[in-house]
Computed example of a mutant assay.
Amino acid sequence: MKATVYNGNQSFTVIEKEIDTPKSGEVRIKVAYSGVCGTDVHIYHGMMDKRVSIPQTIGHEMSGVIDEVGPDVEGFTEGEKVVVRPLDDRLVKPSDKGFNHICENLKFIGIDSPGSMQQYWNVPAFVLHKLRPETDLKLAALIEPLSVAVHDVRMSGLVAGETSVVLGGGPIGLLVAMVAKEAGANVIISEVNETRIQMAGEFGLKAVNPTKIDLVQYVREQTEGRLADVVFEVAGVQPALDVMTELAGIRGRIVMVAIHGQKKPVDLFKFFWKELKLIGARVYEKEDYEKAIALITANELPFEKMITDVQPLSNIQQVFENIDKNPEGLKVLMDCQL
């Protein structure tokens, strides 16, 4: 079979290797599609070399079909369509309080262990989620990032009729906005990239450029002065941190989706003055995956617009180079059987 290998120094190679027999408790998947996410790009840039065991196959956004079921696995059969929830949470402690998805010793499959950018992939059976037979496997490759958005919205406590502002109109920001709108919210995206603003409009979403308008005043006008009930910080930049507390109305909730690797200034006075809440949201839980699967299966939202390119697995080096040249794209899928 073909497998891709990250070698460090912004280099991938495609190798031929034997197809492994699944061990006890494992299932072998014939991978259909594997999406490239921001974390994969960070790996490509060498930002996670201390964590990734080089050389290694990466990837965690995927869809596929069960090819073989290993010993001691029940409930799965060959030919079933599946996706992987790539969290190895077996090393839980009492101090994790039952929140296995963010347990202290959590291992992320596709980063801390081999991932999906290969033709066949052996994984523990407990990370699998079944899909319906009619599910489009291209769209199913979006389930992992969509689950992030579902988790973010669920953690926010958003209800129909509320106003949410999404700071950042990249792939996760767009998915958060779509899920929030599906929940019945009035959604406004703040994005500085004009191409992505146009893309948001094609998704039926309202997006504005905060460098061209007064964003706080705009939201105030849209809400009769109430401002936002929920602000999703997805951009990960200081201007978003500066404006998030201004955008949130009285008792508003701010959901921290972006990863800030260093301490940043935040206007804590606004939390006191308006009784705001700051909510952290990381990865997803089983129920978020099931909700994402239901949304993909229903296919009532324009998920197909998220996929801006599909490339054969053998083109992996070119794919990552092109993402650097065209950061405005949304989701690139690798066809893992080509």
Rank of each mutant, 00 (worst) to 15 (best):
D242G: 15
F271A: 12
I188F: 12
A180H: 07
V234N: 03
L227S: 05
P210V: 11
I250P: 00
K263P: 00
A235P: 01
E162H: 06
L167P: 05
T245C: 09
V255M: 10
E162M: 13
I197N: 11
E194F: 07
Q222Y: 14
E162K: 09
F232K: 10
R226A: 13
M199Q: 11
G168Q: 13
T163H: 00
Y218L: 10
Q198G: 12
A240V: 15
V208K: 07
M178E: 10
V165G: 01
R251Q: 08
K270Q: 13
R251G: 00
V159C: 06
I189H: 11
A207S: 10
E191W: 04
V192Q: 10
G161F: 02
G236R: 08
K181S: 10
T211Y: 03
L167K: 14
G261Y: 09
N209L: 08
I172F: 09
P239V: 15
V243H: 12
K206V: 00
F203G: 03
G249R: 08
Q198T: 13
I254G: 00
L227G: 04
R220V: 06
Q262Y: 04
K212P: 02
M244P: 01
G201N: 09
P265Q: 02
E221S: 12
V216Q: 13
H260W: 04
F271D: 07
G184N: 15
F269M: 08
T245D: 08
G173S: 14
G201S: 03
A185P: 11
T163P: 01
V231W: 02
E233I: 10
